[in-house]
């Protein structure tokens, strides 16, 4: 399992995760009202918190993504990213369980005009995608723990 904690894989996973989060943040930063609308559609957040969340969350994603790409504050950035991913998975799962078909607002905040069935399918895929990204975070954690053990 040495390869799993090796620098070759770790650096690529770190940069890929950073790029994904930067890419996810940009459309939301550009159009906060649309992202606020997306958050509202989740029907989980008390409405006084929707706008502050729509404004700040994309910047947290962007800064954490940049931190991973640049290799600074890596531990903190990946922990925040893990927390965000777990939150997204829970939020989408709750809506899936409710049968509330929503656009996830992950990488695109414009209303896609999809059917309910398409949205439900997308939500399932989003959960799988977020689980995949959690695995990437797990790899980074594992590599970091192995490195600490050696030093």
């Amino acid at each position: 399992m040495k390869w799993l904690a090796g620098p070759w894989l770790t650096i690529r996973v770190q940069i890929a995760l950073g790029v994904i989060f930067v890419a996810a943040a940009l459309p939301k930063i550009v159009d906060p009202p649309s992202f606020a609308h997306m958050i509202y559609n989740y029907k989980l957040i008390p409405w006084p918190l929707i706008n502050p969340m729509a404004l700040v969350m994309p910047w947290i994603e962007l800064l954490c993504g940049l931190a991973l790409i640049l290799g600074i504050w890596k531990d903190t950035a990946r922990t925040i990213i893990a927390a965000l991913l777990v939150t997204f998975i829970i939020a989408i799962s709750i809506n899936l369980a409710r049968g509330n078909a929503i656009d996830c607002g992950c990488f695109d905040v414009s209303a896609a005009g999809k059917t309910t069935a398409e949205r439900i399918d997308d939500m399932r895929l989003v959960i799988l995608r977020d689980l995949g990204m959690l695995l990437m975070v797990a790899q980074l954690w594992y590599a970091s723990a192995q490195q600490r053990r050696l030093t």
């Binding site: 009202p33 606020a36 006084p48 706008n51 502050p52 404004l55 700040v56 800064l63």
Partner: peptide, 22 residues
């Protein structure tokens, strides 16, 4: 992130701006 969000929102055009505290 909060500072960037506030600055970006202050500079945003009318259609892209959000009321911070609703």
């Amino acid at each position: 992130a909060v500072a960037c969000a506030l600055v970006a929102n202050a500079m945003a055009s009318r259609e892209r701006k959000l009321v911070v505290v609703s």
